[in-house]
Design a protein around this nucleic acid. Sequence first.
DNA 1: GGCATACCTTCT
DNA 2: GAAGGTATGC
Length: 401
Amino acid sequence: MTIVTTSTTIPHGFKALPLSILQLSLPAVLKCGQSFRWHCFEELSEYRLCLHDRVVCLRQTANHLFYRALFPDPQPTEGQLSTKDNETLVWLRDYFQLDVDLLKLYDEWSLKDPVFRNIKERFSGIRMLRQDPWENLISFICSSNNNISRISKMVQNLCKEFSPPILALTDPGSTTLTQYHPFPSPAALGQPEVTSKLRSLGFGYRAEFIQKTAHMLVDIHGDGSEEWLLNLRQSSTEHARNELLKFMGVGRKVADCILLMSLDKKEVIPCDTHVHQIAVKYYGVKSSPGRSTMSPKLYQEINTRLVNVWGQYAGWAHSVLFTSDLKSFSSYGVSSTPSPQTLLKKRPRIVREIQTSTVHDSPFPLEDVAHQSQTEIFVSSHTVSETQSSVAERVKRRRRQ
DNA sequence: GGCATACCTTCT
DNA sequence: GAAGGTATGC
């Protein structure tokens, strides 16, 4: 550890948080396909994200993270400001999971895995974000058959279309004005007209998935939808995964992305063709030529293998490998125009019902019953017959797995 | 339960 | 024709 004796120059209006770039590399983490909503201003290495009531701005040097938040009118008074700054700091610590010592993890992975040891120097500071599950869910429904650049544009358009801006800011080092939109609510995306709107925005077949998922969520949990998703953090990996798989457009891979990136399931490894290739190339998983889609069996095999190698934080290690792979194959074309995020939200929340009580009172295994009660709630309260039957089918199908 | 195919769009 | 998959039907 180097001791820095030089005084740091803090950018005007920013606060400084001592933090090694080895613990967190903003350029690596914010553009590697975890979040798609950060505005990245490469020239000045400033990064901006729109939360529900503020825009968080970040810069960084080797040993400091600089942060500030900008607010819509009316501006906070002098007295309110320190509270607001503190909220931003609390959010930062949570979002970047700063209590997790990444250097220690890198050391542990290096001891266990020579492959990791080889790449660690060149890919430092890559950690898992702790994202908002709702935003994460919708973003990753967009990710099927897709690339980072396009997903970023889609998510940006989604926010622009379905969520009013809270603030307009001039870009750093420029006179261009950018509007900052928070991530839209489940209620906003559940409206029936959303499908055609998303189609026209170039979402393709994912348009229907998004509207249906949002509608399903709101139909069951109403204003408590986001909180319900958030509470999956307390559930077991298996239970949370089964819940996620009920949503339209969510298969195993997307579900695992959400588990890892917003539901605290740090051991989960989302397995796509890319990860498959890495597993074959370096970790002794046998290749299966001529197979277009990955079978559940192969998926499980890769997962088991990699968790054996990396341990508890396997999902985190995977993201380092994955990012290194992205770069080395130069498919790292990332748009410089993503858009806004969540948390610090001020929406009314309503009690969510049944679920908990039914689950706990039942003699059946947790997962099974949660599944069942979910189905019943949904089907009985649904109004559109077509959607009703298709979802019932889907849930039935899922139950068989 | 395993397997094949369509699906929006962009990139190679 | 593949790409950072999923739904559907057989």
